[in-house]
Simulated assay, not measured.
Amino acid sequence: MSELLALQRDFAAALRESAQAPVFLARLAGPAARNADLLAIYRGNAVSNAHAALRLAYPVCEEVLGVECFAQLARLYWHENPASEGDLNLYGASLLECIAARDDFAELPWLPDLARLEWALHEAGMAPDHQPTPFVQLASLSEAELAGTRLQFQPALCLIASSWPIASLWQQHQAEWRALHGEVFQLEDCGAETALVYRDGFKPRVLALPAASADLLVALQAGEMLLPALSACAEKHPDFESQHVLHDIFQRGLVTAILPGEAP
């Protein structure tokens, strides 16, 4: 190990754990007390920056937990998962794992899925721009041309299946929802949901999908051909309206390309 690498590792250890500070401080020239104060300031700034990044990515989780509890969670997460990227927009992807591993959140079993949803929204905001494909392009294809056709979706699209109503839970914490409804709904009144995360222009959005729409999007995102995927959904969901669902998928700008197959 080079001297520089050893110094960097001692510095990182001293930032994460105060007990490791003496090893690093012993390497430094100058007044020991002053160096210790400067290290404490650096540690405080690192924790503060990580906390700010997590607050930006997980605003609803912070609201649910409360400011103080979320700050403690952020410090714990930083201690176990120090930032490894210069861009703090990329920090916090595994917070849901930290939440799921803690017994003190056992009374909030839906919280890891809510965190997963918020991170998907955060990533959607940073996803590459895309050009939506209009529905008329699909509607203009003949049945022969549709054979083997697959759909390509926008980079921001993410599907999150949960045993809890996470899309509705997220919605109730938005100012627009509260302006209309005024009070929080009860979780026990709702069932499992598949949340669709996508980007409408530059704005990330969340939508609770009906079961048939969720099954179709899961199949199409996995690369299945359009016609077999539609047939499978129609067989599984007797009330499935393929034209309506497809029109909605295109209307929301989810599709970026129609990939043609070979005619039989």
Rank of each mutant, 00 (worst) to 15 (best):
F24H: 15
G30W: 10
L7I: 03
A26Y: 07
L151P: 00
C158S: 11
A6F: 08
A26P: 00
D189Q: 09
M1H: 15
P264M: 05
E118M: 07
Y91H: 11
P109S: 13
L169D: 01
L207Y: 09
G253Q: 12
H51F: 05
P109I: 10
P82K: 14
L227I: 13
L88G: 03
P112A: 03
P109F: 12
H130Y: 11
S94A: 15
W164S: 01
V60N: 06
Q8H: 14
D215L: 13
A12I: 06
Y91T: 08
C61H: 02
Q172F: 07
L114D: 01
D239N: 08
L180F: 02
W164L: 01
A144I: 08
A33N: 08
I166V: 15
Q251I: 00
R43Q: 08
L95H: 06
R150P: 00
P31K: 15
L54S: 01
R116I: 00
D129H: 14
A219K: 14
W78Q: 11
R205G: 00
R102F: 02
Q172R: 12
F105V: 12
G201F: 14
D239W: 07
E183Q: 13
G261Q: 07
G191N: 06
L151I: 05
Y42L: 10
L5I: 05
G182Y: 09
S94V: 03
D129E: 14
R9K: 14
Y198K: 00
F153K: 09
E85I: 00
H244I: 11
Q20L: 09
G66I: 03
A71W: 05
A120T: 04
A211N: 02
W164G: 01
A46K: 11
E97K: 12
A6Y: 06
F24W: 15
V206L: 07
K236N: 12
G253C: 08
E3M: 08
S142A: 10
L65M: 11
S213M: 14
L39G: 02
A161C: 00
Q20T: 04
D248Y: 06
S2D: 11
T149L: 15
A179C: 06
A100K: 11
D37V: 10
Y91A: 04
A156K: 06
R43I: 05
C98R: 14
L114Q: 03
S213N: 03
Q152R: 15
G261N: 10
A12N: 10
L4A: 13
L169A: 07
P31V: 03
L111K: 08
L180V: 07
D200S: 13
G201S: 09
L114P: 01
Q72Y: 13
H51D: 02
R150A: 15
A195K: 05
L146H: 07
F24L: 07
Q174S: 01
G30L: 09
S163P: 00
G182W: 08
C158N: 09
A156Q: 03
A14C: 04
P238I: 03
L217M: 14
S18K: 14
Q221E: 09
E123Q: 10
L151F: 04
E145K: 13
P165S: 02
